[in-house]
Design a protein around this nucleic acid. Sequence first.
RNA 1: GCGGCAGUAGCUCAACGGCGGAGCAUCGGAUUGUGGUUCCGAGGGUUGCGGGUUCAAGUCCCGUCUGCCGCCCCA
Length: 430
Amino acid sequence: MEKIRTLRGFRDIFGEELGKFKRIEQAFRKYSARFGFREIELPILEKTELFVRSIGDTTDIVEKEMFTFMDAGGDSLSMRPEATAGMVRSYLQEGLYATERMTKVCTIGPMFRHERPQKGRYRQFHQIDVEVFGVKEPLVDAELILLVRMLLDELEIRRYRIEVNSVGCKMCRESFRRILIDFFETRKDELCGDCLRRLEKNPLRIFDCKNQQCIGVTADSPLLFDSLCEECKDHFDLFRQYVAGFGVDIEVNKRLVRGLDYYTKTVFEITSDDLGAQKAFIAGGRYDNLVEEMGGPATAGIGFAVGVERLAMLLPPGEAEPGTECFFAGIGDRARDYLTTLLKRCLTEGIPLRYAYEAKSLKAQMRYADNLKCGFVLILGDDEIDRGTITLRDMTGKSQDELPLDADTIVNTLKKRLSGQAPALSTRDG
RNA sequence: GCGGCAGUAGCUCAACGGCGGAGCAUCGGAUUGUGGUUCCGAGGGUUGCGGGUUCAAGUCCCGUCUGCCGCCCCA
């Protein structure tokens, strides 16, 4: 029989990595709530058209990276490749624009893109997504930067860079697009193949090219940033001013562009050199036209997404907390009978009690208890039962004494010893 | 989608084209019922999968799947 394994780019997430996921979620929930974000769960499957209209039909994501298929009713469906499209759909469908003046929502969950996997890039990956609808003022742009900063501080991540830029409004972009194409047409012979393709599709992305010669060309090229309209320029200046007020360090990168069509004005990207090729782990920006383009009222929007797998790679390994569990080692049938009474009491009283299901030698049981890093072992054999006692061994202190064989006494003693043993339990965030 | 490297025990890796191994981990033992260190022992493999070359293939060739690195793209 051939073993069945996960699909390419799909993985089981467990153990240490899952622990990091949980820490990230916990830190995120703490701060998102503090900033006034409501959590929402969105469908994974949506009509393909949702993504085509929002992300853009010429983007790589939509052109070749979506898991798309026909359902039995003949509709074209797609697994969501990102969250913003669904957030906008939900905002409109639930009529939030009519019931509140401003909406802050967030979600967390799996996204799907049919890309070639490599480290930090999977076909099913997870994003934390944050969106604000109905605020055009740059104060909210800065607030999102502050949220990112507090989240990373909470997770004790220090080595990263926040790069920001403005890609202008529709008008800046339209007029600049022509200037840019005219410029690159004169230097066409110096551009790489990819960039020639970009020139047709999305000339702004030529600024992203890593080819030295292309970088040389763009060094001479006019920049969108320098031809922003007054409004966009003021918006960006205010944004920077507010960020400075929050005391967060950012770098303006006039070459920073985004791959999705809907971005306007503020865009940002948080990168780390500890990640390898896929080094952006948080990115986002403003999309002031998207809601209207999706059939809603003219509504400003801004948001960002966190790549959970990439962020998890930056986290230090979580420290284990040994010694917080107890083990029952029994010898003989009488001890085994007593286990059922004691086990139920312990589990009810909140004491994690471990034991071996099979009858094993005491030595083997002790080894098992040690392996499980149990702080205390209860030893019960015929000798103890005849005396009406039970032995309690402290595994770290290597000392042991006998208690009366009485469930109340045992439970109370264990509670006392465990809380004295592991003060970390009470200082740890729940 | 393109280019390159790799795949051997649960994990990390050895093995000139010639009997598939080690360390770690797991399990058991070291005189009566006491863990970690030490010593002894055991189990564990269709060498990713499928073809081909050869007297003989983990090893060479082709295909395929998967992972990794880079490109592309993006979080």
